[in-house]
Every structure is written in structure tokens, then in C-alpha cells.
Amino acid sequence: MGKDGYIQRKKSIRCRQFIFYLTLLAGFSSFNVLAEYGDVVLNRNAELNDMRPVVFPHWFHRIRFRCKVCHHELGFEMRAGSNDINMGDIIDGKFCGMCHNGETAWSVDNCDLCHSGKPGLKTGIHGSNETSGPGRW
């Protein structure tokens, strides 16, 4: 190997070292990924009726209610998209309407507070194993 070859090889090692540390940095940074919320988007009926999709934030509700309240007492299946919820049911006091009645929580005439999702979002759980987690990779 000539001197030029030696220098080139040194350079390429330095270059590889740089890439290695850059990768290391990227790896460490990924530990600081943004928190995932497990929000459920409901858009089976919403946009068909010219409303924004509904966003249900699990984190907000679980501070106030255990899972069993909605998933046992109120009958919400534990699979996003498997609950056929419509405004009629809610107004009748079923599903969300058990609390969203103006007494425990805001009533159904505050449309925009639930119908607050980005247009075009699909029904499902967002920020979870369905999206950026290891599931469905």
C-alpha cells in the first residue's frame, strides 16, 4: 500500500467513525421519542355528516375513570373501530352519553369539543402499536 492509499484508508476510517457516532447520536435521540397518547379517532360517521372526526383521548379519561367504567359498565369493546356509535345513542345516554350529558361532562351540543380531529383521519387508535410502536411493523 502506498502513502496515498494509507491516507485514503485513514480518511475512510475517520469517515466511518463519524457515521458511527452520528448513528449513535441518532440512536440515543430516539430514546427521547415523543410521548404516544393512544388517542382513538372515530370517523365512521363524522365526516360523512360534514363534521370533523372525533378524537377520544384515553389519557384524559383514565385520570378520572378506570378502564372498567367504559369497557365494562358502558360496553365499549376494547378494539378501536369495533363500536358502532352514533349521535342518537349518545343523546339517549348510551356510550359517551352516559357522562356527556351536561352533568358529569359537557353535553352533546358542544359538537366541536369532541369533533376536533384533522379532516381525513381514519378510524383507529393513533400514537400506539397501530402506528409508530413495534406492532404492525
Binding site: N32, V33, A35, G117, K118, G127
Partner: peptide
Amino acid sequence: LSLNTAQGAPGWKALTNDEVHD
């Protein structure tokens, strides 16, 4: 730098950029 990043504050996204809320 990487240590600093790893121990940074949790990244709670604001509702305006959580990619779910409009």
C-alpha cells in the same frame, strides 16, 4: 449531547401538533 438528549424532558406534543387534532 446524546446523554442530554436521552434524559431530556418527555416530549408531550401539544394538541396543535399531535397530528390528530385539527
